[in-house]
């Protein structure tokens, strides 16, 4: 059984107008695989508790974890994490959790990652694991965001790009000034144009809001991907 542990916030970084990343040092954290999540518990002064699941952006043996949180204006927990929490604050966490939506270097298939918004979090952990392991298996990321300012981990992703890891952005509301295509959603045509084709038998990991994940997963199957090679993680919304 996995117990609740007390973590201390060591760093926060603004990522987007509505989101930031938070690094938490956790005594006794056993490390985590790429794609795993943790449960985070907040307790109000009156004893009321709220628990939420957050994917982990970091990977490996370290005893700290990096999360990234997007603010849901009506949420109970995310406004606190995005607007209020400070280095030195303590949070309760339980994990690492989940062994299904994970990538490990033993998986030598080509890998296509597809993220919507803050769905990038578990997928950047996979890209980091790929780089840390020196894996030469081809990795490609399709990252859908509303505007250029809404990219989480933009600098980190640019630094990870290599001969075996390529990032493609899709902007749904507004694009950078010199962008070749107008804003638009991740359609079947977009997926066909900029992802690893089904004929290469890639593993595919999709994470984002529920509607996004379901539309993308349908397109992937339409394009010939085997349903069992497409792993999804929905975070609601």
């Amino acid at each position: 059984m996995t117990d609740w542990k007390v973590g201390t916030v060591t760093d926060t970084r603004t990522e987007t107008p509505t989101g930031r990343s938070i690094t938490i040092s956790v005594d006794g954290w056993p490390g985590n695989l790429a794609g795993q999540h943790l449960d985070l518990r907040l307790t109000a002064p009156d004893g009321y508790q709220a628990v939420r699941s957050y994917s982990i952006a970091s990977v490996g043996d370290a005893t700290s974890v990096q999360l990234a949180v997007d603010r849901f204006p009506t949420g109970e927990v995310s406004p606190y994490l995005v607007d209020e929490v400070l280095p030195g604050d303590q949070l309760e966490v339980k994990g690492p959790l989940g062994r299904w939506f994970v990538w490990t270097p033993e998986d030598t298939r080509p890998i296509q990652l597809i993220a919507g918004g803050s769905g990038i979090v578990p997928l950047i952990a996979m890209a980091r694991a790929h780089a840390m392991a020196g894996s030469t298996t081809p990795f490609r990321l399709l990252y859908s965001v509303r505007t250029p300012e809404d990219r989480f981990f933009a600098d980190d992703l640019a630094a990870l790009e290599s001969e075996t890891f390529h990032v493609d952005y899709v902007y749904t509301r507004s694009t950078p000034a010199d962008w070749p295509t107008p804003p638009g959603r991740v359609t079947r045509e977009v997926i066909e144009a900029v992802t690893i084709p089904a004929s290469d038998s890639p593993g595919v990991f999709v994470c984002g809001p529920t509607g996004f994940v379901e539309a993308v997963a349908r397109s992937l199957v339409d394009l010939g991907h085997q349903p069992q090679s497409v792993k999804t993680e929905r975070f609601g919304g």
Binding site: T2, D39, S53, G95, W100, F101, G236
Partner: peptide, 14 residues
């Protein structure tokens, strides 16, 4: 729809 998927069960089932 606001459902998520079974990944979210990892914590409570642990």
């Amino acid at each position: 729809s606001s459902h998520v998927d079974g990944n979210a069960l990892a914590g409570p089932f642990s």
